[in-house]
Design a protein around this nucleic acid. Structure first.
Length: 462
RNA sequence: GGCCCGUUCGUCUAGUGGUCAAGGACGUCAGGUUCUCAUCCUGAAGAUCAUGGGUUCGACUCCCAUACGGGUCACCA
């Protein structure tokens, strides 16, 4: 039974990189009739953000990457929130102490969490004390200035087998004696993740390449416990246009941002799938079902791709264009209620008609509204010059002559205007819509109706 | 700085020793269709496969070095 997981930390907004990881883990689990779980890694109390967990799940739901087990969907391997598993970690930490694979180290509190400057080689200063070390985790927590570190071999290389990159050898000096339990009794990622992955039956660990350097420590821990090592896959990390790791500073990383910009979750997922993976037939647009059936973890590329918004926007347009009108209407309604902008002034029939002519002209849902301003009740014709006025008068005459109000008869009328005033389309377009270009004019006027069109003309002429 | 991972058109990529003087997609440019704008269609420009050495009859593909990029070196994940 394949079991995969993502392990987000509730430290802020949901990151697009988390979704990228979720996509691979989800697809692989689905392909193999396995389970995909979400474990909340909240062992860092300093960085914890209230409400962040809820927002992660909201993003997961939006993308439809529904998990089988998680803190909100508790299965038999729970709890799925690390803060609720402290006793478990302590038990296993004690096992390590008993086997002498871990030891208590003395550290003054003041050193906690300080970053270092690595432009030059740094020699870590060890604190010394004459105190006897604590005997148990409980005693350690009580004392406050002790931590638990793992032991690492001084004479042997540690080999990490990565399914994408092959064997990676780490010499002893690269494998430091990682802190396992912090002085507050909370485990670090390294202990917690290994214990949880094992206890939760994770078979394939798919995570970002930033974890490669700490992988040997994880391998060691598995060995200390005598556990099987799940298959390890280190995926490339998404990059900014300047090639650095995708960050808020240089690009858009917040899932919420993509939603507010009118991107469709399916399109984002499709685009993300293309970042590091290629369809066997080199197809660019494919469904999640197709992706699941074709996807293989081992085919993931090793190079960090640059997240290119231009191509995502194109992809989004592709998705919008292939939707049926009813779905697009529903999608637009949901989007505009999400961004607090209503489409309610338009009745259903009108909205359908507008959407069908707007469909090929928008790449994101957000582009819809600016395109349809001339359909809103408060819109009017734009007559600014005497020439405009003359055109409007002819327009009125021609409109009055039309008996059957449809796009063909309207187009004919418009052609007459263009000819008699020898003007070009953008001028006429501006008078009617206020913009130089946009949705097709005959269709727009047909939807608007003869009555409304004449009404607006009269108002503009008076 | 040490170590680790990587390096094919601006970007995403195909390519696993000969079929590649490198194919596709986005973007760009030009043209066609057309009531504007899009869609759609056609075409063009765009990569001496980071550089230099090997190995081989033959290398984008294998090996080594150099350069460059990224990651990591926290009581953060």
């Amino acid at each position: 039974m394949v079991r995969t997981r993502i392990a987000p930390s509730p430290t802020g907004y949901p990151h697009i990189g988390t979704i990228y990881q979720a996509l691979f883990n989800y697809a692989f689990a689905k392909k193999n009739n396995g389970k995909f779980l979400i474990r909340i890694e909240n062992t860092d109390r300093a960085r914890f953000v209230e409400g962040a967990e809820e927002v992660i799940f909201e993003a997961i739901d939006w993308f439809g990457l529904t998990e089988n087990e998680s803190s909100r969907k508790v299965g038999e391997y729970g709890p799925y929130r690390q803060s609720e598993r402290l006793e478990i970690y302590h038990t296993y930490a004690q096992e390590l102490i008993d086997k002498d694979f871990a030891y208590f180290a003395y550290y003054a509190k003041a050193d906690a969490g300080q970053k270092k400057d690595y432009t030059h080689t740094v020699v870590e200063k060890k604190k010394v004390t004459t105190q006897a070390p604590p005997k148990t985790i409980a005693e350690m927590i009580k004392r406050g200035d002790w931590i638990l570190r793992m032991r690492a071999p001084k004479d042997k290389d540690t080999v990490v087998h990565d399914e994408i990159r092959g064997e990676i050898v780490f010499t002893p000096d690269q494998v430091t004696e990682q802190v396992l339990v912090k002085s507050d009794g909370f485990p670090t990622y390294h202990l917690a993740a290994i214990v949880d992955d094992h206890l939760m039956g994770i078979t394939h660990v798919v995570r970002g390449e930033e974890w490669i350097s700490s992988a040997p420590k994880h391998v060691l821990l598995y060995r200390y416990f005598g556990w099987d090592i799940p298959k390890l896959y280190h995926t490339p990390t998404l990059r900014n246009p300047d090639k650095s790791k995708l960050s808020k500073r240089h690009g858009h990383t917040n899932v919420q941002w993509f939603r507010e910009e009118g991107y469709l979750p399916e399109a984002i997922l499709n685009f993300l799938a293309l970042m590091g993976w290629t369809h066997p037939e080199e197809k660019e647009v494919f469904s999640m079902e197709e992706f699941i059936s074709l996807f293989e973890l081992k085919d993931i590329r090793q190079v960090g791709p640059i997240f290119d918004l231009t191509k995502l926007t194109w992809m989004n347009g592709e998705y919008i264009r292939k939707m049926d009108v009813a779905s697009l209407v529903a999608e637009l309604k949901e989007f505009y209620s999400f961004v607090d902008q209503s489409l309610e002034s338009l009745d259903e029939k009108t909205l359908f008609a507008i959407v069908s002519i707007a469909q090929s002209r928008i790449a994101t849902l957000k582009e819809f509204y600016p395109l349809i301003s001339h359909f809103l009740p408060e819109a009017k014709f734009h007559i600014t010059t005497d020439e405009d006025k003359k055109i409007a008068e002819t327009l009125k005459d021609e409109f009055l002559k039309i008996e059957r109000w449809n796009k063909e008869t309207i187009l004919e009328a418009l052609r007459i205007i263009l000819k008699t005033h020898s003007i070009r389309m953008p001028i006429l377009y501006t008078i009617i819509t206020g913009h130089e270009r946009g949705l097709p004019l005959p269709e727009s006027l047909e939807i608007l109706g003869k009555e409304t069109s004449l009404d607006r003309l009269n108002k503009a002429l008076s």
